[in-house]
Simulated assay, not measured.
Amino acid sequence: MSDVIHASAAPRAVGRYPHARRVGDLLFLSGIGPRDPASNGIPGNVHDADGRLIAYDIAAQTHAVFANVRAVLDASGARWEDLVDVTVYLTDMARDFPTYNAIWAEYFPDADTAPCRTTLGITALPTPIAIELKCVAALSGAGR
């Protein structure tokens, strides 16, 4: 059996899937991007007069995606420290990895307690975002 989690403080899903699903002591988060939960806007995106994306701010998007992951963890009764595995998707690895990696170190300053991580460079994501995270958390203890 599993529990489905829909987090009201996270951006709504862009398809027919939950924010997370708990199976036993594991919590699987769907891919989470940096969209603003209130406005559905994408932090740091700059558009021209015709609405085409012309620039983005990977730092703003990285902070926003971490906040959205935290919102789903909170709604699930989990903590940031419960993360055990994170897959990161970047649309421009060469340009964005150094900034993203520095921000990761702010959120996970101790490599020994940080979750495992895989970072992939991909050509596109379903919406005009530059980063998405896929996370797994391990839950344990009374009351969880």
Rank of each mutant, 00 (worst) to 15 (best):
Y100D: 13
L27K: 02
P98R: 10
R21S: 08
D57R: 00
L90M: 13
P115L: 01
R70E: 11
E81V: 00
G41H: 04
Y100E: 03
N101I: 00
P109E: 15
A114G: 01
D48H: 00
S8N: 10
T91A: 13
L83K: 06
A130Q: 06
D112W: 04
R16A: 12
A20P: 05
I54Q: 01
E132A: 04
H47I: 01
R22M: 14
H47G: 00
I129D: 12
P98I: 01
T118W: 11
H63A: 04
I42F: 03
H47L: 03
P115C: 00
D110S: 07
F28R: 14
A105E: 10
P109N: 11
R21I: 13
A142D: 13
A78M: 08
A38M: 08
V69A: 02
R16F: 12
S140E: 15
M1E: 15
R79N: 15
I42Q: 00
D48E: 04
M93N: 13
D50K: 06
V136P: 06
V69C: 06
G41F: 01
L73Y: 01
W104L: 02
I122K: 02
I103T: 00
I54Y: 04
A9V: 05
D110L: 15
D36H: 14
G121F: 10
L73A: 10
A105N: 06
A78F: 09
S30G: 04
L133T: 13
A7T: 02
P109H: 07
I5N: 05
A138I: 14
T123A: 06
A111I: 09
A64Q: 07
R12A: 11
R22Y: 11
E106F: 10
N68Y: 11
H63N: 02
R12G: 10
T119Q: 11
D36I: 08
N45K: 01
H47A: 09
P115G: 10
T62S: 08
N68Q: 03
G24S: 07
A130V: 14
E106P: 01
R35N: 13
V65R: 01
S2I: 00
V86H: 06
D112F: 12
S30W: 09
G41N: 10
R22Q: 05
Q61V: 06
L29P: 01
M1W: 15
N68V: 08
A102T: 08
F97S: 09
Y89P: 10
L139R: 03
C116F: 15
F108C: 03
Y107E: 02
C116K: 09
D96K: 00
S39L: 01
L29C: 03
A55K: 09
E106S: 10
G141R: 03
A49I: 05
T127G: 14
D82H: 14
R95A: 15
A111L: 13
I129V: 12
R79H: 08
G31L: 13
G33V: 07
G33I: 12
G24A: 08
R12H: 10
G143F: 12
T113S: 12
C135E: 12
Y89D: 14
R12V: 10
T113H: 07
I103V: 04
A55H: 12
G44Q: 03
